[in-house]
């Protein structure tokens, strides 16, 4: 359940305004973003639905824009007191790196590497969690995806580079 201070945070208005702004921009540019060439009348065409949806979003964001420009007296930027999500951002960065790693260094190295680094960063120190778990989870992933599901993962780029 959301508490009253959380609900009154201006962060809600900021996000609503950003989404509404994006919708307004897409609405204004939709004739260029949707290919409308064809014999169909407008109501059968591909533009009518996005126009309705984007208009609805833009209208829904108007109160947020107004409140961002004229904030109520009791409004603050305080959200939930949990601070900036630094840990989350770092883990997300590692996840993106692991994703790139799938192409560059391959499935096995990428999965094991992500788990070791992420778990170490999150304060895990025991050898079971830093060595055994990454190896077991990586093995499971390889067995399930490569052997049980028979999915072909492209050869890692590093192999090509090493092979000349």
């Amino acid at each position: 359940m959301t508490t009253a201070p959380e609900k009154n945070s201006r962060v809600h208005d900021l996000l609503a305004a950003v989404l509404g702004g994006m919708a307004a921009l897409l609405l204004a540019t939709s004739p260029w973003n949707v290919d409308t060439e064809g014999p169909d009348p407008f109501y059968k065409g591909p533009l009518i639905f996005p126009l309705i949806v984007l208009s609805m979003m833009t209208l829904a964001a108007i109160p947020a824009w107004v409140r961002l420009l004229r904030p109520p007296q009791d409004s603050t930027w305080h959200l939930d007191g949990r601070g900036l999500p630094v840990k989350t951002a770092v883990v997300l960065g590692l996840l993106i790196a692991a994703l790139m790693g799938l192409v560059v260094i391959g499935l096995e190295a990428s999965c094991a590497g992500f788990l070791v680094v992420a778990l170490y960063y999150l304060g895990r120190r025991g050898w079971v969690q830093l060595v055994v778990m990454p190896v077991v989870v990586t093995l499971l992933i390889v067995v399930v995806f490569k052997y049980l599901l028979g999915i072909f993962f492209p050869t890692p780029l590093i192999m090509d580079w090493m092979g000349g």
């Binding site: 883990v91 692991a98 994703l99 992500f114 778990l119 999150l122 992933i141 995806f145 599901l149």
Partner: peptide, 19 residues
């Protein structure tokens, strides 16, 4: 630990969608 679970689930999620 929820954190241990979290990193494992997010890894499986992105690998499975890539696959």
């Amino acid at each position: 630990s929820p954190r241990v679970l979290a990193v494992n689930i997010m890894l499986i999620s992105v690998v499975s969608i890539y696959a």
